[in-house]
Design a protein around this nucleic acid. Structure first.
Length: 483
RNA sequence: GGCCCCAUCGUCUAGGGGUUUAGGACGCAGCCCUCUCAAGGCUGAAACACGGGUUCGAAUCCCGUUGGGGCUACCA
């Protein structure tokens, strides 16, 4: 090894700039799962290297940006357990900076004022499209309609015939021909910067060292490089990660059902499951599927990021959520369910009863909501019988089973699981039937369904009174049906 | 159309020249457990897009074809 490379290697270590990443959503909607994954990757990457993770709100689209979306995005990030350092940077607060920088570029002859209106441009584009041609802005129109006081946009001069090299950490080098890039707008007529300008300026001024973002931005890379170069700014290292697609292979969108973190939250998904599922989409670590947050911070690296797009699989997501649901601590589960019960306006339950319901239902559900929704018969005596179930099990020949159960269960000492078990055994003896022949009709009488937790658990949870009234109801039902 | 990206089971993916009869996970099927449904355990079906190279040898490297996706805004 030569001295030079040794020096370079060690210098790199010592002076290596601190890793700074950012998440830069535009507040034009809720936090999309694709954007959430981008945030997770950036956050994990910087956390792994003991760097900073910053948050920047790209609200330069005046028509579509809304403050409520900003709040929603921030809330979603917090919910996911993603935290950032320092103040949130808001681009609308930095209009001055962009204006000055764009002015400087104009003064230096690297950019110019363009008086062609957006409408006119639209017309030209339309015209060209009709003729089957590709429209590209031509600089000679730049002074069209120029007049003092007239509004204009600022465009960056792009020299044609040059190669722009994008060094992508996950894809390698991508070359663009500058002739393909027109003199793009950096400052709109309303004084707001365009995305490519603001992003390049901010990344430099925020000392962003690494940008990890979706594949769909790869086309923007050469433009942002051009901006940084014109301004003499530094350039962050870029990594473009493959996009998340819907089952139809198209970019994930509203058409595919739930697409925002908020929606999954309200459907009863757990934040650690969302994080885990999303991180595994486009990133992997050998055969491992389940990752704790702290573990991810330790092991995450760009090496695990793949190149091909991934299809969002709701089924696997659901399975993962179920996994986490079964793992969740009792206390936290209890709190979540209590607030859900309240929200859904289900009747309030005694603490101990609810605890037992949860214990039984958590392994039969994939989401928090599922636990509550599938427990209706625990919450009220007033439930419907499933038609097929009633037809098969709420029949004359089972009447006696219900009568016996009523007798044996009513006189139990303390209605514990063991007591209930004993009660059923006595009914088995009296009828000469196996447990299966008794449990299934009982299940239907007690829950209206052929599916439920173990019958002794159901009986124990419901309690003496409720069981008695449900058995009576079943007996009545059979009678009235025969009448 | 142009530019750019991508290509292993249905899906997420491991594997990056010989260790591969291509591994894991979801889903699917079967079995076990069992009072039903789950959970859990076990077993099974299921993939290197195609064509050319390079090489003693290619899922792995190169080229092409095909297919998919993205961008093509005074949106981000």
């Amino acid at each position: 090894m030569s001295d030079i490379s040794f020096f370079a290697a060690s210098a790199c270590k010592i002076t290596s700039v601190k890793v700074v990443t950012r998440f830069a959503p535009s507040p034009t909607g809720a936090l999309h799962v694709g954007a959430a994954r981008t945030a997770i990757f950036n956050w994990l990457f910087s956390a792994n290297l003991a760097g900073d993770f910053l948050l920047r709100i790209e609200d330069t689209d005046r028509a579509r940006s809304e403050e409520r979306f900003e709040r929603q995005i921030i809330e979603s990030l917090r919910w996911l357990g993603i935290d950032w350092q320092g103040e949130i940077v808001r681009q609308s607060d930095r209009l001055d900076t962009y204006g000055k920088l764009a002015g400087r570029l104009v003064d230096e002859g690297k950019a110019y004022r363009c008086y062609v209106t957006a409408d006119e441009l639209g017309r030209r584009r339309e015209e060209a499209r009709e003729k089957g041609e590709v429209f590209r802005y031509k600089r000679e129109w730049s002074q069209l309609g120029a007049a003092p006081g007239k509004s204009y946009a600022v465009r960056l001069s792009v020299l044609p015939g040059e190669n722009i090299f994008v060094k992508d950490l996950v894809r390698g080098e991508i070359v663009f021909d500058s002739s393909e890039i027109e003199d793009f707008v950096i400052l709109k007529a309303d004084g707001f910067p365009t995305y490519n300008f603001a992003a390049a300026v901010d990344d430099a001024q925020m000392d962003i060292s690494h940008v990890i973002r979706g594949d769909d931005h790869i086309i923007n890379a050469p433009r942002q490089i051009l901006v940084a170069e014109a301004l003499g700014f530094g350039k962050p290292k870029l990594s473009h990660v493959p996009m998340i697609l819907g089952a139809d292979g198209k970019k994930l969108s509203k058409r595919h059902g739930a697409e925002s973190v908020t929606e999954y939250r309200s459907r009863g998904y757990l934040p650690e499951a969302v994080l885990n599922y999303l991180v595994r989409l486009g990133w992997s670590f050998g055969d491992q599927e389940i990752f704790a947050k702290q573990e991810l911070v330790k092991i995450f690296s760009l090496k695990g990021i793949g190149k091909s797009p991934s299809v969002f699989d709701p089924q696997k997501f659901l399975w993962l959520n179920g996994k986490y649901l079964r793992d969740m601590s009792e206390e936290r589960m209890f709190e979540e369910i209590v607030s859900l019960v309240k929200k859904k306006e289900f009747p309030e339950q005694p603490r101990e009863k609810l605890r037992k319901i949860i214990e039984q239902m958590r392994e039969r559900s994939e989401t928090l909501n599922g636990i509550v929704d599938q427990s209706l018969y625990f919450f009220t005596d007033d439930f419907e019988y499933e038609e097929k179930a009633a037809e098969k099990f709420l029949v004359e020949k089972n009447s006696q089973i219900f009568e016996f159960l009523l007798e044996e269960l009513s006189c139990l000492e303390d209605f514990s699981y063991n007591d209930v078990h004993g009660g059923f055994q006595r009914v088995m003896k009296r009828t000469g039937l196996g447990l299966g022949r008794i449990a299934q009709p009982a299940r239907v009488a007690l829950t209206g369904s052929t599916k439920s937790p173990g019958i002794f658990d159901v009986v124990e949870i419901l309690g003496r009174d409720s069981v008695a009234s449900r058995l009576t109801r079943a007996i009545q039902f059979i009678k009235s049906r025969n009448a």
